[in-house]
Amino acid sequence: MFPFKIALNTSTLFPFNLNVIQQIEVAEEAGFEGIELWMQDIEAYISGGGTIQEIKSALERANIEFINAITFFKWADVDAEVRKAAFEQAEKEMQLLKLLGCKYIAAPPFGNVEGTNLDEMAEYFNYIVRLGRQVGVEPILEFWGKAKKLSTLDEAHYVLDKSNISNGKMLLDPFHMYVGGSDFSGLKSLKGEEIGVFHINDYPNNPEKDELTDQDRVFPGEGALPTEEIAQLLNAIEYDGYLSLELFIEDFKGKTAAEVAKYGHNSVRKSFELL
């Protein structure tokens, strides 16, 4: 049984230097149902003469849902002027993303967040979500395992609860859970509806946790991640949304983008199949 849907985070294809149209076409060919595009790639395509309509048409032709955009605005920065600029940036980006039919936008702890306490983060997240809902794109709370603040599942759950946002959601990532010291059993404390997107990757036993970087991520099933346990936990809390493959491997040893995408799709399905 496989109760999830599978998406591709296009960071996985970065070594191939594809534009967003090509990324969408590769994802379609490999059988992905959803896609996470990076704002930098969308903006590069448009600044190069491409149009919003061309991207939207490519998504429609592929019958792929644009589930989430990856971008970086300093919504939780300790500096009020920096936050103000971040909210303006986010609003502008969400207005563009709305035209593309994008569902979510990631809100990670980007910027100088060490001096921001969790209650303040909850207040700022409330603001960014209300802003997004006015536009029609939902910000989802992401934690980073090596962030100075908002580095664990417990912290993210606290911020989500304290934000007083109805039906607020988080973006979870097993790599960040592992390097930040979050126990996977903590997923039991969540409701499936609190997860907007679940990133999928794996991590090796070596190097040590403190020395791991994004580039060390490997395909699911090829590292130490307890994929079967996580699949069972997600199913138990009734999460049936997207598992989105997000890798930052810099060299695929001669494989084509199509081969990498297909292999990645198969590895997600195989690793998270429920027995």
Results as ranks from 00 to 15, higher is better:
Ile52Phe: 06
Ile140Glu: 05
Lys209Asn: 14
Leu187Ile: 10
Glu54Gly: 14
Arg83Pro: 07
Ala236Gln: 14
Glu193Met: 04
Arg133Ala: 05
Ala224Val: 06
Leu118Gln: 04
Tyr45Glu: 05
Asn167Phe: 01
Tyr263Arg: 15
Leu153Glu: 04
Val113Ala: 02
Thr71Asn: 13
Ser11Met: 11
Glu222Cys: 03
Val20Gln: 09
Gly181Arg: 06
Leu37Gln: 07
Glu29Tyr: 12
Lys209Met: 13
Tyr263Trp: 15
Ala224Glu: 11
Trp38Val: 12
Glu238Thr: 14
Ser57Cys: 06
Lys169Thr: 05
Ser11Ile: 05
Asn17Pro: 04
Ser271Cys: 13
Lys148Tyr: 05
Ala147Glu: 02
Gly50Cys: 12
Trp38Ala: 13
Val197Asp: 00
Leu190Ser: 07
His176Leu: 11
Asn235Gly: 15
Met94Gly: 05
Ser182Lys: 09
Pro207Leu: 04
Asn164Ser: 12
Phe16Met: 01
Gly111His: 01
Ala7Ile: 02
Glu208Cys: 09
Met94Leu: 00
Lys270Asn: 14
Thr10Tyr: 13
Leu247Lys: 11
Gly192Gln: 04
Gly196Glu: 00
Met121Asp: 03
Val268Phe: 02
Asn17Leu: 10
Glu211Pro: 01
Ser47Arg: 13
Val218Glu: 07
Ala80Met: 06
Glu43Phe: 09
Ile165Phe: 02
His157Leu: 05
Val268Tyr: 00
Ala261Asn: 09
Leu131Gln: 15
Leu118Gly: 01
Pro207Gly: 06
Glu65Gly: 05
Pro207Phe: 03
Glu229Val: 08
Gly115Cys: 03
Asp183His: 15
Ala86Asn: 03
Glu25Ala: 14
Gly192His: 09
Val137Phe: 06
Ala62Gly: 08
Tyr203Cys: 01
His199Phe: 12
Phe110Arg: 06
His157Gln: 09
Tyr127Val: 14
Cys102Ile: 06
Ala76Arg: 10
Cys102Lys: 05
Thr51Trp: 12
Ile230Pro: 03
Ile128Met: 04
Ala30His: 08
Leu96Asn: 09
Gly180Thr: 01
Leu100Asp: 02
Gly50Gln: 06
Thr12Cys: 11
Gly264Ala: 01
Phe110Ile: 15
Gly196Val: 01
Ser271Thr: 10
Gly223Gln: 05
Gly50Thr: 08
Phe32Asp: 01
Thr152Gly: 00
Gln89Thr: 09
Pro207Lys: 11
Gly264Pro: 11
Gln215Pro: 13
Asp240Trp: 14
Leu18Asn: 09
Phe32Asn: 00
Val26Phe: 08
Glu155Asn: 02
Ala107Phe: 05
Ala90Phe: 13
Lys103Ala: 08
Gly241Glu: 03
Asn9Phe: 05
Phe66Tyr: 14
Met177Glu: 11
Glu25Trp: 07
Leu18Met: 12
Leu171Gln: 02
Met177Tyr: 10
Glu43Thr: 10
Asn235His: 14
Lys188Trp: 15
Lys149Ser: 08
Asn205Glu: 13
Arg61Thr: 01
Ala224Asn: 08
Ile64Cys: 06
Gly115Asn: 04
Trp38Arg: 15
Gly101Asn: 08
Phe32Pro: 00
Lys188Val: 14
Glu54His: 07
Pro108Ser: 02
Phe272Gly: 10
Asn63His: 13
Val179Arg: 07
Gly31His: 03
Ser189Tyr: 15
Gly145Ile: 03
Thr227Asp: 11
Ile6Lys: 00
Tyr239Glu: 00
Pro220Trp: 04
Thr152Met: 02
Met39Leu: 11
Gly223Asp: 01
Glu238Cys: 10
Tyr178Glu: 02
Asp251Leu: 14
Arg83Phe: 07
Leu18Cys: 13
